[in-house]
Design a protein around this nucleic acid. Structure first.
Lengths: 227, 227
DNA sequence: AGGCGAATACTCGAAGTCGAGTATTCGAGA
DNA sequence: TCTCGAATACTCGACTTCGAGTATTCGCCT
């Protein structure tokens, strides 16, 4: 059996932490928090403990000892196994070298935005833009702070990546908003008309027929798609 | 009880489809496929049926009729309810107007990349860059095709968004690769030395101590963090 | 006429996700 | 010395996710 692994990236974080040195679950979570890794890896207690258990069952990590410090409850300290170290490397290699489609909520929302009327979508994207810019300022403040305490950039690459995506999203929304406000986005009139008809209470099939007639040219693509 | 909703965006897609007109689950999946929405919304059969059931239990959709066409098995046709339509609107409003952190695998991998030696990470990111560029060409070909069949841009905004993120990622990886190859990324030497010591079999605590001594200036930030 | 691959239409159960809840202990201040 | 909030260290179970498997039928090709 090829060594399988859990799908949650938190499991990879656990492997990396145990590759550094043995520790117990709660220490993993606090270490991740200290290093600001919770910004890039979703951390939640339930998942942490179940992920640790899942790694143990697969033989990627093992319980090293159970210690009791002061009068705190007992804690199980885990260590990485040789197979675990190998899986960690393979996993990192795959994630770094091979891009794979990541589904985002915003992309889903964009693809379904047609269900709201164009005016409302314009308004909502305006709000989003304001929120994004506000967020960007906060992120820049964090970078500024990092520079003043001389934190080496190595420890923040993931934050820089996420900031780069944020900048790209801002540019995209700005551009889209411009086209929406100008009404110049291809298909805009069709979209508007569809909502007009719905508001008027026209039933679905009739809407389809009317739009098909009124926007014959714009909907031409749909007719010869039977290839 | 405030109308709750499933968390899977596929449920939003179901609401939108049923807002257009009643249909049965299999038709939902084929409609989504025809419209290329599976590129922006993760579609999988298991999830589809359980999401439909979950929407039904919450009263956001309801079974309208069960039909049997030809000698095909029976199918349940669902319709959206008034509450369902409201939830659909609220959900779209939230997703479009309010950005929320999306965790990506690559961001997680970047934040844990320190567990591989710098030379290997450089090599892997080189591979990634080649893959990303290849993928970008394919995406551009799709856009080209869309232009020739005159598909209105409205129907592809989500694809344009995803392409914008792809471009941003390429730029980021190019930039990062440059700094890695030049060895100019802050913390690079520290990272290299850490792996050197590990290869030499030095135990964790000693590595920490040595690095702390050798890179006192670069690690200064860590010492006065006890605020 | 009949065979076979593509499309239709789901089902199932193992695995994973999540946040709220619980119980304890430490330490700063009144 | 007492208290109270923050930190420590998990547990629980309801809900989701997922992909592989199943069973049928349509329609083209020979």
């Amino acid at each position: 059996m090829a060594a399988t692994r859990p799908s949650n990236p938190l499991a990879l974080a656990v492997l990396v932490l145990l590759w550094e040195r043995p520790m117990h679950p709660y220490e993993m979570s606090s270490t991740l928090r200290e290093r600001r890794k919770e910004d890039s890896i979703k951390l939640n207690y339930g998942s942490l403990y179940s992920v640790v258990e899942s790694l143990r069952k697969r033989g990627l990590i093992e319980a090293a000892e159970t210690v009791r410090e002061g009068r705190r409850p007992e804690r199980t300290v885990y260590a990485i196994t040789d197979i675990g170290a190998q899986v960690m490397v393979d996993w990192l290699v795959e994630l770094l070298s091979t891009p794979k489609k990541e589904f985002t909520q915003f992309e889903a929302a964009l693809s379904l935005a047609g269900a709201l009327p164009p005016e409302q979508v314009t308004e909502l994207l305006g709000q989003r833009l304001r929120n994004l810019r506000f967020h960007q300022k906060a992120v820049e403040a964090v970078f500024e702070e990092a520079r003043t305490v001389k934190l080496p950039r190595l420890f923040m690459i993931e934050a820089e990546f996420s900031a780069a995506l944020l900048t790209a999203e801002i540019a995209f929304v700005e551009q889209l908003l411009g086209e929406l406000r100008a009404g110049s986005l291809g298909g805009f009139a069709l979209w508007q008309r569809m909502h007009e008809l719905r508001r008027a209470g026209v039933p679905p099939e009739e809407i389809d027929a009317k739009l098909d007639a009124e926007f014959a040219d714009e909907l031409a693509f749909a007719r010869d798609e039977s290839t």
